[in-house]
Design a protein around this nucleic acid. Structure first.
Lengths: 197, 197
DNA sequence: CGGCTGACAGATATTGAAATCTGTCAGCCG
DNA sequence: CGGCTGACAGATTTCAATATCTGTCAGCCG
């Protein structure tokens, strides 16, 4: 057994190491035993902090998704930008973030795509958070008289659904087509026009 | 060998039998040998009409997709319906057709979903045909002054992309959620509002 | 005492040998 | 003669034996 590190074994440290192991071995080969080995502990110790491999992977997934939510929250709650323009910025930031992640490290992105498919509950929560941000932006626009929507949450959901091709990881392959930007802009323009007062 | 049928071996007959074999065995188990056996010929004879298994499966896929195109063409080219309403009818028919196919025989639908993933070229052609129909509907509306779009083909493409969740087979699982109809209507309303003159 | 270990049972994944399939073609049969 | 057959080589799939992994827990060690 490798010389024990003095650091205590915390959920946080396990999560970091799990990310690292997933990055190195991919979603199918990464095992709890690998994580334990990388931490220099027995795999039984990992089970002291997470009840199952599934729970561990779920926690990693949640952590990863949380980063985008925070970034987008910055745009959603920034004062001073009018709602229509803010809506466009938000959608562009969402697409740009996804595309960047996928382009920078395709293998890691593929790994997380697998994790996402495994953890539909976590994904649902995440999507709800994003749609909440959209709801707030649209509500702002309705209050200011620049946007119109009979049912604001439904409109937010519709905007999210309509732009799915540009944020749903199932479409990664299309995000690097030469025409994708034009297509994205056309959908965003259509959607914003549909929402204008 | 089974008693030879008098009927000549035609590409058409091979295609029908291939569909039948795919229906019975599914996309992973169906083999060229199975098709030949069902036809009462040797598998070498099948290769006389189709150069490869891939070409055979591609032809079956093409045939299947062609059916929807014909049905939707009926709506697209029907006279007497104003463009905004026709656009809505067309999108509803597309969604309804897909949902029906998927609900009636989920296994067969899953089989064709695999075939679709294998034959992206055929799918691309099919999508182009559908977007052409949309282009014609929108052009009609622009000519009549009921719709507005600076670039009609781009708008057609945007409408198709925006409604992807309701026709892309990757989303089958969601087509039977209790809220899907509401969500579909919200997206269609948003899109049509975005196109109105 | 309390966190950690490591052996264990059952579940899952890997491996390599055997079976089947794809695609070709020389020759048969009507 | 011309469409069809069936044997064949190489590629792919299947299957069962083997190895590894997951999750538990009695007991060790600091």
């Amino acid at each position: 057994m490798p010389s024990a590190a003095a650091e205590p074994l915390t959920p946080e440290r396990i999560l970091e190491t799990t990310e690292e192991v997933l990055r190195r071995f991919g979603p199918t080969k990464a095992t709890v035993v690998d994580v334990a080995r990388a931490l220099g502990v027995s795999h039984g110790s990992v089970y002291r902090h997470f009840p199952s491999k599934a729970a561990l992977r779920e926690a990693v997934t949640d952590r990863w998704l949380a980063k985008s939510v925070v970034m987008l929250e910055g745009i959603a709650s920034a004062p001073g930008e009018a709602a229509p323009s803010k809506l466009e910025s938000w959608l562009e930031a969402l697409f740009e973030a996804k595309r960047h992640k996928a382009g920078d490290d395709p293998e890691l992105f593929a790994t997380y795509t697998v994790l996402l498919a495994e953890n539909s509950g976590v994904v649902d929560t995440h999507l709800t958070e994003l749609i909440d941000q959209l709801t707030r932006i649209i509500a702002e626009g309705v209050a200011a008289g620049t946007l119109a929507a009979p049912d604001v949450p439904a409109a937010a959901r519709a905007v999210f659904d309509a732009t799915g091709r540009f944020h749903d990881p199932q479409y990664v392959a299309e995000w690097f087509s030469p025409t994708i930007t034009t297509e994205f802009e056309a959908v965003v323009a259509l959607v914003i026009r549909g929402l204008r007062a």
